[in-house]
Amino acid sequence: MKSQLKILALITFLSGVVFLSGCDEDPEPEDVEEEITKVVLTFTPSGGSAIVVEAEDFDLGGVGPFEKEPIALNANTTYTLTIEMFNGFYEPTDDDYNVTTEVAEEAEEHQLFFSWSTGVFTSPTGTGNIGSIGVVNYEDQDDNNLPLGLETTWTTSSATTGKEFRILLKHQPNEKSATSTSDDGGTDLDLTFPISINE
């Protein structure tokens, strides 16, 4: 009977050896195309040079903050705001780096919403359309003629400081409609920038 035990031990050992000796290849990294780690806001006035504001999550999936530059606009000026989004897991030369194109292609299921502190803009009036019904001057539409928001226009008020400007990109597959709001769908991007209006 002792020999039976020995056989068992041998089988155990041998099967261990078989698995241990299996040659290992390193796993392949995943394409992480879905992430947005950088946002560039370009405020272009009708005349003059554009103001570019960047926000970036430098440590990608780490605990570090999504660092945001403050927005500083000139008083009583009309700007066209274009929003670009990037995925820092890729090199700028990769197609997957620019997320803006994908959002534009799937415009029927995306919408950007905005909100801001009172007294920042004279147009649109109000404080935006996040969590409330407000006006935003959308300059682009999807195929259903519903607003998208990659391009919007804004007219600043007189000088003010210490205010906020929030951008919310919602993904609303089969939900986006004339009556859908910022409460519908899932959040793809939600950033709040400090904003000030200079003299």
Partner: peptide
């Protein structure tokens, strides 16, 4: 006696950062 060998692998193509690593 008991012995166990486990091999865990991600199935490629999730396009997300894997939540747990591959392991033996």
């Amino acid at each position: 006696i008991n012995s166990m060998i486990q091999d865990n692998n991600k199935i490629d193509g999730t396009q997300t950062l894997p939540f747990i690593p591959n392991f033996r």
